[in-house]
Amino acid sequence: MDMFYAVALTIMTAATPLLLAAVGELVVERSGVLNLGVEGMMIMGAVCGFGAAFYTGSTGIGLIASIAAGVSMSLLFGFLTLTLVSNQVATGLALTLLGLGLSGLIGEGFVGQPGVKLWSVAGIDPLIPGAILLTAAVSYFLFRSKAGLVIRAVGDSHVSAHSLGYNVIAVRYLCVMFGGACAGLAGGYLSLAYTPQWVENMTAGRGWIALALVVFASWLPWRAVVGAYLFGAISILSYTVQTFALGIPSQFLSSLPYLVTIIALVVISGNRAMMRANTPACLGKPFVPDR
């Protein structure tokens, strides 16, 4: 029973950062913006969160710092893609590359330092239910509120939204910032709760997996929960199996989450009709208001 609880707990801690980042990106993509820089925002969140907690001793301040880091990164992305209408794919990649480089530089002094761990009750830290509550809130917001409707409208046709008098760019900025906050928080969770220490490149592709989760969830928040917990389970499974089954090389088990991501993408994307019906129509398309 204890064994079962321990495994369930590790699955939850593995799933939570994925869910946080995925839900944020889901809102961004619903507004028609593709931010591939989740990995970069996440790693910046991780290093800034760790650093702030390390110096102040407060995980609360750490989490706030990680959110701030994610938002700052997302603003950089927003300025380029929304104000300067640069290519969203390339800019997202740039954000990731910059984030990975910058975090390495910032975090140099933190390597090997003891971290501060987020408080928890019976192993459950506040962000585990927090992430699920956030999903519920996002789901309600997107599908039950006027503001959520506006976001979906902007993602479906920015030209129509513009001609009805909505400020497309402002809506997208807000969504991009929300996505940055979520990704930053997800990073902070990694360095403050998941493995309370700083390791270079510690996100290890989780930002990209979160991006895949959004596709897997076909842009519906609740499906992201299912996806995140599924992936959490798979990555934990690979560690758990490593300790038992000596026959299978650990590298193969470690590559399991990445392979599963590919398989999930293939399965979901293969259904072209469903993809076309659910993908925000303006996803990744630049918008310049005419005058």
Binding site: S145, K146, L149, V150, R152, A153, D156, S157, V159, S160, A161, S163, L164, Y166, A277, P280, A281
Partner: peptide
């Protein structure tokens, strides 16, 4: 002439986007 409609949304949602006041 070129409609300002949202294909993925319902008729009511499309109209709600242009209406002021309560949702």
């Amino acid at each position: 002439q070129h409609f300002s409609l949202f294909e993925a949304l319902t008729v009511a949602e499309n109209i709600a986007l242009a209406m002021p006041g309560d949702f």
